[in-house]
């Protein structure tokens, strides 16, 4: 009961103090706000990059085209060899005939053109489609298959995917660097705010000590003040990220530039991001205030 009373009192004092030193609090809140906006953007970006990387990886397929002169036996030999490779998860075979049938189904024009080809003229090839277990080793696996007899070409969508992933990951790294730098600056600003609050309430603190207030009671309001600064500082970033992401998602219709990059659905994603943003705000605020208390409030 007493603990709740003291916590209630600490919260009341902390709120009062935030508004009593409003210009100072505003500086800290603005800094937290800017930091959290960037943090929120970084979180949204990195979650999306991770999501689409996974999506792409799921879809990544190696396509093996056999040479035209490969006999059925040779094809089976390649199939067995590929099947036994450790990184291969699944293998499907499509003969020239099956490819032709499939393409014919897709369009009447294809059908007419392909019907005009003789067996020798046909550019269609017997094809294997395979999924791998480890996407990072996809290049190696493709190279090994390429070296096999009677294999014409091996394709796995190299190039574009790699470039996209590496571009996004460098953006992510830069964002994290900026976030860390901003968090450090914010923590220092909060330390300064709380320091000034402590100094402005020196008389009150000394009387509290005289009449027998314990350390918890004396220190708690300042720590809570830091938390409040963090919470207030996270309001604007949450609003921005919620409506911003919704608008962004709707504007691009769920896909960024190409169908390859699928954005994460706003709900419940934005709620989790908002939660993380508030938590980071509280954490940064508490970190700043508790180090100020440790440094400037010797009890």
């Amino acid at each position: 009961m007493r603990l709740f009373r003291m916590l209630g009192r600490s919260c009341r004092d902390a709120f009062k103090s935030v508004f009593r030193n409003f210009s100072l609090s505003l500086a800290s809140i603005s800094c937290i706000t800017i930091t959290l906006i960037i943090v929120a953007i970084a979180i949204v970006a990195s979650f999306n990059v991770e999501n689409f990387t996974k999506e792409i990886e799921k879809d990544l397929t190696i396509v093996v085209f056999m040479k035209n002169d490969a006999t059925e036996e040779e094809i089976n030999e390649v199939k067995d060899k590929v099947h036994n490779m450790s990184n291969v998860a699944k293998i499907d075979f499509e003969s020239k005939k099956e490819v032709k049938e499939e393409m014919s189904k897709e369009s009447e024009v294809f059908k007419t053109v392909m019907d005009g080809w003789s067996e020798e003229e046909s550019p269609l090839k017997d094809t294997f489609r395979l999924k791998v277990k480890n996407v990072e080793k996809i290049g190696k696996t493709a190279k090994k298959i390429q070296k096999m007899d009677k294999v014409a070409t091996v394709k796995y969508g190299e190039g574009m995917v790699d470039q996209l992933v590496s571009a996004f990951s460098s953006i992510e790294k830069v964002a994290y660097g900026v976030v860390i730098a901003l968090v450090v600056v914010t923590v220092f600003l909060i330390i300064n705010t709380i320091k000034l609050t402590i100094f402005s309430r020196k008389r009150e603190i000394s009387i509290m000590r005289l009449v027998g207030a314990n350390n918890f009671t004396i220190k708690m309001p300042f720590i809570i003040e830091g938390m409040i600064l963090g919470i207030i500082g996270s309001i604007i970033p949450i609003i921005l990220i919620t409506y911003g992401y919704l608008a962004f998602y709707n504007y691009f219709d769920g896909y960024l530039f190409t169908e390859l990059i699928k954005l994460i659905k706003p709900e419940p994603f934005i709620y989790s991001v908002s939660g993380i943003v508030v938590l980071i705000g509280i954490l940064v605020g508490t970190l700043g205030s508790s180090s100020a208390v440790r440094k400037y409030l010797k009890v």
Partner: peptide, 23 residues
């Protein structure tokens, strides 16, 4: 005296009870 100027007489005295968690 060491009173808190922004608090009333009552609040100054009650302060000593409040900060030790008295009901």
């Amino acid at each position: 005296y060491r009173l808190l100027p922004k608090l009333t007489v009552y609040e100054n005295v009650a302060f000593a009870m409040e900060v030790i968690g008295a009901p």
